[in-house]
Design a protein around this nucleic acid. Structure first.
Lengths: 345, 345
DNA sequence: TTAAACAAGTAAAACGTTTTACCAATTCGC
DNA sequence: GCGAATTGGTAAAACGTTTTACTTGTTTAA
């Protein structure tokens, strides 16, 4: 019922008759070779007893560090990003950091606004999945050197920066090869037309897999805005209409796959008999789908762990402000029925 | 490349030869009847010109307000909660608040830890979906009156508090009545055994719908931990085994439905011919499923809007610290093929 | 004419830390 | 025995706000 009064260093100082400075040194583990063990113990015991917790805003005001990390995803309600977000939480909290999440909606303006909003709030680090055409802004952000900047899911080849991404090339290659091994003669690729590195790397992986196998690549690169729309579905259908010989499809994202599967349902295509399917990014719906959908799944816990650990490492800054952290993690092919043509049954 | 120096009130004061107090009054719109229009304009123009932004931690230190809201969901990676989270973001930012998200995992201990962690950080408000058996802790949190407390998705009947929830009773009733109207003779209910109000209200809605229709209710209440497990699926199958006459099922959550649908697939049950199905909470997978699944969908944008607006209203605190904000929103039945028995075709 | 009211503005304390610069007393090297 | 180094500790400034209590000069009411 009663608001219990927070205890400050000053209170401890008065109570114990020890100076504020000394107490601060002890709290911050800077007391070695300065303060006697006796006093250290006395203060530490008292702190434990009264449950002293430092006032974060006073620390921030003094040090300029907010102990805050921003995770700027494309869409925080997307299962992939929200799963990563959740995994990061714990580690961040245990290291005394809090995370703030937000969504760019793949919109440059919005992303810029958010960055400047959070810069005003003096966050310590940005973990960002940049929207399209955002390289210059990212470059500027890095150059300012006010915050740690870590990219996720996408990277830029022409800039030196920190990132954690999937091994998109080999993932796509593995998936396409699986379709070929399953008996597909003409494998098509459905991706997104964008400057995201993940998209071009996946496309290259597909191309590499099929180059000695079929006469020509067949692909559809949808604009980002059409990934989930009826218009996108129409384009997908017309791809199938133009190339009647397509008997296998690799979808580059789960969004594309969901829309594509809707299209295939509308066309009454039999999977996998008429068309085998593999997609990136696992989702629970793919296991339940009839037939169940094979996927190249991203190692969400590992990605999240690397992401937050890398960011924390850079925040510690032991190796200077120009240190970078770069990690490429392998995906995992999960074979289900959508590419099971019975070739080896 | 260069870190640009932040400008403080003191800088403005020096530059303009006006006292810090005056400038602070102008910034906080407390200058009316105190400061001449001429000076106000001069200061406002200068602020705009140099892009002054107040230092948040100094404000916090002085006022004790962090402008931070915590959204403590059961699982922030659950599509329902992450969709709500995303909707709230914008409104919060536009009102100068930031939101921190976290997950309780339906674990009392964890929830308590998180609450005390964020109390130490002096957040201004908690939006909480409480875990099981958490009423007393919530009561204490409210009684302390240090933060605004808003419950979401679940409420307690024996305590006066703020909440935003779905009209669970009528939602369940509508869904069950739909199954009956579609021609089902024996409708079963699959829910969660828990003290969550949403669960009991849904069960009551089901009971109310069938009371004049079938001789007895048939239900399975799974423990929370088994919702997504094989063990839960086994219990579900044994329900069907014990009551061979069941021809309609109402699932109380989408998690239950997904696991249930897996079970039905394993049993090779034909939906809707042998068993019609409706579930709470829409998900994109339900539209794509064969057959598509009918749902009682929650109005996510409306829920999120009420949630954040209510919280902001309480934070303004115009009506005293004991004001509460209570909102019950109706769900919407979306009819798809899983309950289409052709009765009216 | 004079006290009261008002208008326009300011000085300074306070919020709770961190950290620099300093002090006093003891020990050490020679 | 004397300066230098070490040990154990502290005073006080600074971070950038908000807000209380004041000042000074002018207008108003009676």
């Amino acid at each position: 019922m009663k608001k219990k009064q927070r205890v400050s260093i000053k209170d401890i100082s008065k109570e114990l008759g020890i100076s504020i400075t000394t107490i601060s040194f002890i709290i911050n583990k800077k007391a070695k070779n300065r303060i006697s063990d006796e006093v250290i113990k006395k203060v530490e015991d008292y702190i434990k007893k009264v449950g002293y917790k430092p006032n974060t805003s006073a620390q921030t005001l003094r040090t300029g560090k907010t102990k805050t990390i921003v995770f700027m995803a494309e869409d925080i309600s997307d299962p992939f990003f929200s799963a990563v977000a959740k995994e990061m939480e714990d580690i961040a909290y245990k290291n005394g950091y809090k995370i703030i999440y937000c969504s760019t909606e793949n919109d440059k303006e919005r992303a810029s606004e958010l960055i400047s909003l959070f810069q005003d709030r003096q966050v310590d680090a940005f973990i960002i999945t940049p929207p399209e055409n955002f390289q210059q802004e990212i470059q500027e952000l890095i150059d300012q050197k006010n915050e740690v900047v870590m990219l996720f899911d996408r990277r830029y080849n022409t800039t030196e920066h920190s990132y954690v991404i999937l091994d998109n090339f080999n993932g796509a290659k593995t998936a396409a090869e699986k379709l070929i091994a399953s008996g597909c003669i003409n494998v098509a690729y459905v991706g997104i037309a964008s400057d995201f590195s993940c998209m071009s790397e996946r496309f290259e992986g597909y191309n590499d897999a099929i180059k000695n196998h079929q006469s020509q690549p067949m692909s559809l690169l949808l604009p980002f805005k059409d990934v989930k729309t009826k218009a996108g579905r129409a384009q997908f259908k017309s791809l199938l209409d133009q190339h009647k010989n397509i008997d296998g499809i690799l979808f580059a994202t789960n969004g594309l796959a969901i829309n594509g599967l809707k299209g295939l349902k509308e066309l009454n295509k039999k999977i996998p008999e008429e068309l085998a399917v593999i997609t990136f990014d696992d989702r629970d719906l793919f296991e339940l789908h009839s037939p169940s959908i094979s996927v190249l799944s991203q190692p969400v816990p590992a990605l999240a762990t690397e992401l937050i650990k890398g960011t924390l490492q850079l925040l510690k800054g032991k190796n200077g402000p120009d240190e970078t952290f770069q990690k490429i993690l392998p995906g995992k092919l999960i074979t289900r029925n959508s590419c099971n043509l019975g070739v080896y049954d």
